[in-house]
Computed example of a mutant assay.
Amino acid sequence: MPMTQYLAEADIKTALDAFQTPGSFDHKKFFNMVGLKKKSTEDVKKVFEILDQDNSGFIEEGELKLVLKSFHANGRELSDSETKALLAAGDEDHDGKIGAEEFAKLVAQA
């Protein structure tokens, strides 16, 4: 399922362009720019399901590394430090992955 089903393609492109440089990713700014913060709880859950590529019910570190590519094929991979920072920001229970509720809270912080 493409992200454009829930988010505007122009917003996704603008956000990806803003974070093209490795080390520049800021999840709060990104979630605002793609319009995710303004979406309903149900839409945020649908985006979570897209990011959870293996359908495990969690977004693990490997999936976080590909978060920008999940929004659009032209997105870059996050650097290791960006991936770890995103995981640290969202992993409230420190189990090494982000669940749906944790993701919703992460988006709400943006």
Rank of each mutant, 00 (worst) to 15 (best):
M1L: 02
M1V: 05
M3Y: 06
M3F: 04
Q5P: 00
Y6G: 03
L7Y: 03
A8N: 11
A8C: 00
A10I: 01
A10M: 00
A10H: 02
D11S: 12
K13W: 01
K13V: 03
A15L: 04
A15N: 02
D17R: 03
D17C: 02
D17W: 01
D17E: 07
A18L: 08
A18K: 07
A18R: 06
F19W: 01
Q20L: 00
T21N: 11
T21R: 14
P22L: 06
S24H: 00
S24L: 01
D26S: 05
D26Q: 09
H27K: 01
K28W: 09
K29F: 00
K29H: 07
N32G: 11
G35A: 04
L36P: 08
E42C: 08
E42H: 11
V44C: 05
K45Y: 11
K45I: 14
K46F: 04
K46H: 14
V47A: 11
V47I: 15
V47M: 12
F48H: 09
F48T: 12
F48G: 08
E49L: 11
I50L: 14
I50K: 09
I50W: 12
D52A: 13
D52C: 11
D52L: 13
D54H: 14
S56G: 13
G57V: 15
G57Q: 12
G57R: 12
E61H: 12
E61V: 12
E61W: 07
E63I: 15
K65C: 09
K65W: 10
K65H: 15
L66D: 15
L66Y: 14
L68D: 05
K69N: 08
S70G: 15
F71K: 08
F71I: 13
A73I: 11
N74C: 03
E77T: 13
L78S: 11
L78I: 10
S79W: 09
S81R: 11
S81L: 10
S81G: 01
S81K: 13
E82N: 08
K84F: 08
K84R: 13
A85R: 13
L87K: 06
L87C: 07
L87M: 05
A89N: 06
A89P: 07
D93Q: 10
D93S: 09
D93A: 01
H94L: 00
I98M: 00
G99H: 02
E102C: 04
F103N: 07
A104C: 01
A104M: 00
L106V: 03
L106C: 06
V107F: 01
V107P: 07
V107K: 04
A108E: 09
A108C: 05
Q109F: 07
Q109M: 08
A110V: 02
